[in-house]
């Protein structure tokens, strides 16, 4: 019983770590690829074209 609880706890904390990592990654990609604020769009413009984000 104790072992089972411990295993569950480890898996649970990994799931949180994966979720956190995913959210940070999506945040970075929103800034570099999707956000349409003019300053951001102009700065990221060449990179967005080169990486084929749908741009303007």
């Amino acid at each position: 019983m104790t072992t089972k609880t411990a295993t569950f706890a480890v898996t649970g904390s990994n799931t949180l770590a994966f979720a956190f990592t995913l959210i940070v990654g999506l945040g970075l990609l929103t800034v570099s690829g999707m956000a349409q604020a003019t300053v951001l769009h102009d700065a990221a413009h060449d990179q967005r074209h080169a990486m084929a984000f749908p741009c303007h």
């Binding site: 990592t21 995913l22 940070v24 990654g25 999506l26 945040g27 970075l28 990609l29 800034v31 570099s32 690829g33 700065a43 990221a44 060449d46 990179q47 967005r48 080169a50 990486m51």
Partner: peptide, 16 residues
């Protein structure tokens, strides 16, 4: 800034 945004994009994809 193109180089900078490449680092951001690849780090973002790396996190996923």
């Amino acid at each position: 800034v193109t180089i900078g945004f490449n680092l951001v994009t690849y780090t973002g994809y790396g996190l996923l």
